[in-house]
């Protein structure tokens, strides 16, 4: 059983995770869900107040790393690479991410992540992230 409070305490110690402004809502041995609260520094398109694509990808990477290694003490899991498919603009408001560890071996993990806003069916972006575990 993973202690959610302990995970969020670790999250709050990572400077960039504080910058992203998110909280872990649930976590188990192969999943993690997070909620990011919109702040001005997340804006990519100042005319429309859309999320910056890089902020969306960053939340996905953070959520994926937590799913791979929820009890990280110092630095989160080491990312190797990622691909992201942007499906809809992320508008002002909360953004949710769910990471699912598809495969976790001795050296590598593969994680798929999806993000949405008010409707879970309306995916904002989805991605595939690889992590090095050694």
């Amino acid at each position: 059983m993973i202690n959610l409070q302990a995970v969020n305490a670790n999250v709050s110690r990572v400077p960039f995770f504080r910058f992203l402004n998110f909280e872990v809502q649930s976590v188990d041995s192969c999943h993690a869900e997070t909620e990011m609260t919109f702040v001005e520094r997340h804006i990519g398109n100042p005319v429309m107040d859309y999320y910056h694509g890089g902020i969306i990808a960053s939340l996905m990477e953070a959520t994926a790393a937590i799913a791979v290694h929820p009890d990280f003490a110092d630095v989160p899991a080491k990312p190797i690479n990622l691909t992201v498919d942007y499906l809809r603009p992320g508008v002002k408001g909360s953004l949710y991410a769910r990471a699912n560890v598809t495969r976790k071996g001795k050296r590598m993990a593969s994680v798929s992540v999806t993000t949405w806003q008010t409707d879970r069916e309306k995916t904002v972006a989805e991605g595939l992230y690889h992590f090095l575990l050694v």
Binding site: V14, F16, L20, G44, H52, G53, G54, I55, A57, S58, L59, E61, A62, V75, P79, L82, V84
Partner: peptide, 13 residues
């Protein structure tokens, strides 16, 4: 140590 996400954001920008 920079987070990968900021590098991704930088490339996108």
């Amino acid at each position: 140590l920079l987070h990968g996400g900021i590098l991704t954001a930088l490339l996108d920008s």
